[in-house]
Design a protein around this nucleic acid. Structure first.
Lengths: 185, 185
DNA sequence: CGAGCTATGTCAGCGACTGACATCAACAGT
DNA sequence: ACTGTTGATGTCAGTCGCTGACATAGCTCG
């Protein structure tokens, strides 16, 4: 797959996370990452469209999962429940690898520029759920609001999941958060 | 105020919006903006921490307004209503200058990197409302969820306000959107 | 009119990112 | 085993975003 060792991409991701944790994001150059991974700066930018993207590998998969699972949810679910089903399906993609995900989350919250990118990725999930809901026949405004609410539940639950020392599963955290959300109105 | 003409900052904002509209954000260099505004590139970066910030001038004011108005809302309001009061107060800061705001919004949605920044600014409003709610004695989780919901209403309502040809006021749009949100649950 | 403050100009330099071109490993077909 | 093709990588030069250090011009105040 690569000119020398295999899995250049994986090595770059690992090198980046190590370096970000050691020195911080801003103090790490793309060239640093590439060097530790045994490749060139140029090949780093062939794999990742920019320096931040090295931490956001699986996001297209999550987007597609969100869309598919929202669309495939039982027909009798409310818009909000369908969107929740979509987002929950996507969340199960990361709920497993707990320590990797948490390590990554800490790096992200430590850097505004990475935080920005994460908000953007979350917005793509919202859009995916919105599109799927519209496909289900939900009117525009309601689709958008339901998708946003589901994304909110995910974001807040994820934050708590990361912060808690002895944790529930991410799924459980989401369920509890969703319950509180419903009690708001 | 400036070495030559007054209101260098205002001229840079105007120049940036014109150039972004003419050639697009990526095809406009910071030096281009500075030149059209009659200043140096260095001066541009003294006024704006980065190239995107030229479109996000009033955001600290909106953040403070959100916090203050959420905190100052009548004590008998629910968390969601208090947060809505805060965000609505902030929205009135832009609801006036409609064509400027819409022109700006179109530039932002046309460019992912600007969109990223806008999501970040919206997140700061959410945080401001969350903090104010906590100050009101609302428990953490509920505060966070209420603030997120209020921000969602604002974001969705704003999007519709920008898209509509013959529009309601932004306030009206927010009220209608909030009603639909409540009907979701 | 001189002292000091502040906004601006000038210059040098790093790091993010890109386009163009050369190169190397693996693989397919002969 | 030989060769042509393909795809990932290396090399190089260059643009642009952004910053630190220092010089300078305008304003204010005594």
């Amino acid at each position: 797959m690569s000119r020398w060792e295999p899995d250049a991409r994986g090595r770059m991701i690992g090198a980046a996370m190590d370096l970000f944790a050691e020195r911080g994001f801003d103090q790490t150059t793309a060239s640093d990452i590439a060097e530790r991974a045994g490749v060139t700066e140029r090949t780093f930018f062939r794999h990742f469209s920019d320096k931040r993207e090295v931490l956001f590998g699986g996001s297209e998969v999550m987007e597609k999962t969100t869309y598919d699972a929202t669309l495939a949810a039982p027909a009798d679910l409310t818009p909000l429940d369908a969107a929740m089903a979509g987002i929950t399906a996507a969340s199960s993609l990361i709920g497993d690898r707990r320590d990797f995900t948490i390590r990554r989350a800490r790096l992200i919250t430590a850097n505004p520029s990475l935080h920005e990118r994460e908000l953007f990725k979350l917005a793509t999930l919202t859009t995916a759920a919105t599109n799927a809901l519209r496909e289900r026949g939900v009117p525009e405004l309601m689709a958008s609001l339901a998708a946003h609410c589901a994304a909110t539940v995910f974001a807040v639950a994820f934050e708590r999941w990361v912060a808690s020392a002895e944790p529930l599963s991410l799924d459980e955290e989401i369920k509890q958060t969703a319950t509180v959300l419903r009690s708001l109105l």
